[in-house]
């Protein structure tokens, strides 16, 4: 079985999802559920911390694509942080850095959300 976990943390008005393990077509629904819960709770400032994400396939990338539009319509964003080079390379091959805010550190993403509010 591929192992994958999503943990949620709150940082004021920002919600952080910590991803761990292998994100493929089998485990992507777990991430979908996490995003659905956030949107249902009107939490639109979302950081996805990929520090412990070992693997991602297009099924995982599809989850980000499925939610970004609604999140941005609500003046929020999905910011991705702390990717390993291997995971970043997959995002990069598909041109995601054009569309998604990807930062090295979570603190940088938090700062961007905080500055936007001022």
């Amino acid at each position: 079985m591929s192992e994958f976990n999503v943990q949620q943390r709150e940082h004021g008005e920002i919600s952080v999802l910590d991803l761990k393990g292998y994100l493929d077509a089998h485990t992507a629904p777990k991430l979908e559920d996490a995003f659905q819960d956030l949107l249902a709770a009107a939490r639109f400032n979302i950081i996805v911390n990929c520090r412990d994400l070992s693997y991602i396939s297009s099924a995982g990338l599809g989850v980000f694509m499925a939610f970004i539009e609604e999140v941005r319509k609500n003046e929020g964003d999905i910011k991705l942080t702390n990717m390993t080079p291997k995971v970043f390379n997959v995002f990069d091959l598909l041109g995601f850095p054009l569309l998604y805010d990807i930062t090295n550190e979570e603190a940088e993403a938090i700062r961007k959300f905080t500055e936007k509010r001022k």
């Binding site: 599809g62 694509m65 499925a66 598909l94 041109g95």
Partner: peptide
């Protein structure tokens, strides 16, 4: 990507 299409990647 602009059209935010899901799947087919």
């Amino acid at each position: 990507l602009k059209k935010f299409r899901k799947g087919g990647l």
